[in-house]
Amino acid sequence: MTTIPLTYPLTLGAILFGLGLYGALTQRNAIRILMCVELMLNAVNINLVAFAATLREAAAAGQIFALFVMTVAAAEVALALAIILILARRESHIDIERVHLLRW
């Protein structure tokens, strides 16, 4: 287990999540948005692992949850990049400010 107080990793998670969020909200490059999303997922994983390390009854559940998040993240990256590739091929750019498929 650990000797680090729970507040430390939680704060780290919050900060990393915030950075990822800011990037996802402001960046126009689709790949960079994808990276930011990955960053947010990692921040969540830090939280899960921190809880698993501190709360004895959650020791297995927290880490396994983190593991599943990783699995999903891997799948998500693969699919997201595939979609970005299609976008790049069709529009010859990956600027999501110029993609209006959801517009009325």
Binding site: A24, L25, T26, I33, I96, H100, L101, L102, R103, W104
Partner: peptide, 8 residues
């Protein structure tokens, strides 16, 4: 409905 994913 702007179509901007980020706005959503």
């Amino acid at each position: 409905q702007t179509g901007f994913v980020q706005s959503y």
